[in-house]
Amino acid sequence: MAIVSVRQLVKRYGDLVALDHFDLTVERGEVFGLLGPNGCGKTTAINCMLSLLTYDKGTIELFGEPMGPARYDLKRRIGIVPQQVAVFNELTVEENIDAFCSLYVADRTRRRTLVDRAIAFVGLGDFRRFRPQKLSGGLLRRLNIACGIAHEPELIFFDEPTVAVDPQSRNAILSGILALVDAGATVVYTSHYMEEVEQICGRIMIMDRGRAVAEGTVGELKGMIGIGEKIVVEVTDLPEAALDAVRYLPATVSASYRGRELHVACAQGESHLAAVLEVLASFGVAPVRVYSEPPTLNDVFLEITGNELRDHGAGDERPAGR
């Protein structure tokens, strides 16, 4: 069953089209990754799904029911971990989690259990009485997560939860997200870190200019681009003729020589490593080190969205309040 179903969503800010007939389906129990360059509409899409923003056209269904600002029954089943840390600076870790949890759960006794569970989940047990100012960046992010998941929601939106977090904390956060999914939650996850998305997301959508430009599993996405293999050969010297010969191989997409390394991007299909080495041998070039790897999600992302720099203002990434 689809937990999130967005159809033909259009959101305009004046002349700017933030979401252009955007479609999204997220199935129960999956971790769905939403990728895209800055200003592509990720946060706008999430804010529309949460009814924090109005939209011009389209439909949004959560848990199989139409979502709207007054659907408090549905909101009760949703958690959000915003991009910016959203906590009360005057309250302790425990009080913060309790405060946000109380907006979903009125019963104090049950809340106490939920707060304890959330603190244990994010590993903030030793910092219960700490105020946010006393926490490191990583701990603060964990508190941010605890505040969003304490009421044990069925659907959780993580909007770049690992920005500016050290590798240990990031690892703890990602493991935590997988644990939430194991416990039955459905997760919509946005991030700029490709390796994270590759690590935890079952399915991924790449957005650009308010539209979904690619969607699928990591393998499916990698299969959508022209590159199937990246070969790196370290050599002491490479004659220009040898580089040209590699470029003329039928499977070569691109080849370049920089910093004593020959980089060859090959087309989808079988491995072309042997062919490349054979060409080099014919020119008497002896490889020092050779390795071959499949394309990364980063390659997929750059090929699909392009390499040009862009930063469409901060408007799209701003949190929407009441």
Binding site: N47, L50, L52, P69, A70, Y72, D73, K75, R76, I78, I80, P82, Q84, V85, A86, V87, F88, N89, E90, F100, L103, Y104, C147, G148, R318, P319, A320, G321, R322
Partner: peptide, 22 residues
Amino acid sequence: ADLRTPEVRQRIGATPVPSAAF
């Protein structure tokens, strides 16, 4: 002040607390 920050307002906006009640 903390109840006015955009981040907290976003978080509270996503809760089942009606806007009028807030």
